[in-house]
């Protein structure tokens, strides 16, 4: 009987490498930089291509104590949530490789305020930084450009650019040498289109991370999962506008669900609250790592540990 030959896919495309952060040598103050992307294979199939960089974990911190976070998360971070600089340090200690600073809506949200917070966070941690606005077009525009200016030289990423609101943010990134995060609603063509629009403004693809959007486990995760698989397949097949590293926010999505937020009046079959919440985030994030995520943004320190262990195991070939 003939021996079986292991089939290998021959991919022609490669995901672009993107570097976040800048050390003193490159005009920044980061202690280290993070490079992602570069894949020439589907996730972790090391037998047929390269995955030169491991997927990395970012931890999300807020500019002020979050009003709507699960008590499980608040408990885990303790007093650190009172101050974004402390929180950034705690996140670094918890294993973050990137800090995502997420601004919330607040009465005092302004350009000055945002710059002050960004400077404090940059001073508190040596990790590369991603900054998300509160998610309202006018406010995002109002703070992200000054943030880009305040972080000059640091090679941070600004987010999120959406089809209706990307020009000002991209202009800010261009003017101050930063990157952007481009988010679209779970659709391969929308993702490509936004990448085209952004690169048409003059920002090289090497300075874009794409966020195809994810849903939480049980709340639409499978749509995001499949879109990410399709985007990565397209990238490997040579479609240039899909060859960007992917960033997703499973932490935010998972901790918004009832499963993670509610501790009382829930069915016994849901099990222990803390365990369930962490499992919800871990399983959402782990599934996305396996479908091609290059950066997962997480919220709970224990999920960080578990996803880190998982990524280590998957890179160990």
């Amino acid at each position: 009987m003939p021996a079986i030959e292991i089939p290998k896919e021959k991919w022609s495309g490669q995901v672009k490498e993107v570097t976040l952060g800048a050390t003193a040598a490159d005009g920044g103050t980061r202690v280290k930089t993070v490079t992602i992307g570069g894949e020439t294979t589907l996730p972790f199939l090391h037998f047929e291509g390269q995955m030169p960089h491991r997927p990395v974990i970012a931890i999300e911190i807020m500019d002020r104590p979050p009003a709507d976070w699960s008590p499980v998360l608040l408990e885990a971070w303790g007093d650190a949530v009172q101050n974004p600089a402390d929180w950034a340090k705690a996140a670094e200690a918890a294993g973050a490789e990137i800090i995502v600073l997420h601004f919330s809506l607040g009465p005092d949200l302004s350009a000055d305020y945002a710059q002050k917070i960004v400077r404090a966070v940059l001073a508190a941690t040596g990790l590369p930084l991603i900054v998300f606005g509160p998610g309202q077009a006018d406010l995002d525009n109002e703070i992200l450009v000054p943030v880009a200016e305040a972080a000059k030289g640091e090679n941070i990423a600004l987010g999120v650019c959406e089809d209706k609101n990307y020009r000002t943010i991209v202009a800010g990134a261009l003017a101050h040498g930063q990157l952007v995060v481009a988010r679209t609603a779970m659709d391969v063509n929308l993702a490509k289109q936004l990448n085209i629009l952004i690169s048409d403004m003059g920002l090289p693809l090497e300075r874009i991370l794409m966020d195809p959007t994810t849903g939480a486990l049980g709340y639409g995760m499978e749509y995001g999962y499949s879109v990410m698989e399709r985007l990565r397949l397209a990238a490997l097949q040579g479609d240039g506008m899909t060859q960007l590293p992917m960033i997703v926010t499973p932490g935010e999505e998972a901790w918004r669900t009832k499963e993670a937020r509610a501790g009382e009046g829930i069915p016994a079959a849901w099990g222990d609250w803390v365990e369930r919440g962490i499992n919800w985030e871990t399983l959402t994030a782990g599934t996305l790592v396996e479908s091609g995520a290059d950066v997962v943004v997480l919220r709970h320190p224990e999920s960080v540990k578990r996803i880190d262990a998982m990524i280590n195991a998957l890179m160990n070939n």
Partner: peptide, 30 residues
């Protein structure tokens, strides 16, 4: 849990877990 998740998405027909707890079973079933 995450390894069991990998096996669900990537091609197992039978998955054996070493223990049972509702807090783990629920997310895996979902």
């Amino acid at each position: 849990l995450a390894l069991a998740g990998q096996h669900i998405a990537k091609y197992a027909g039978f998955i054996v877990l070493d223990s049972f707890s509702p807090g783990t079973a629920y997310p895996l079933l979902v």
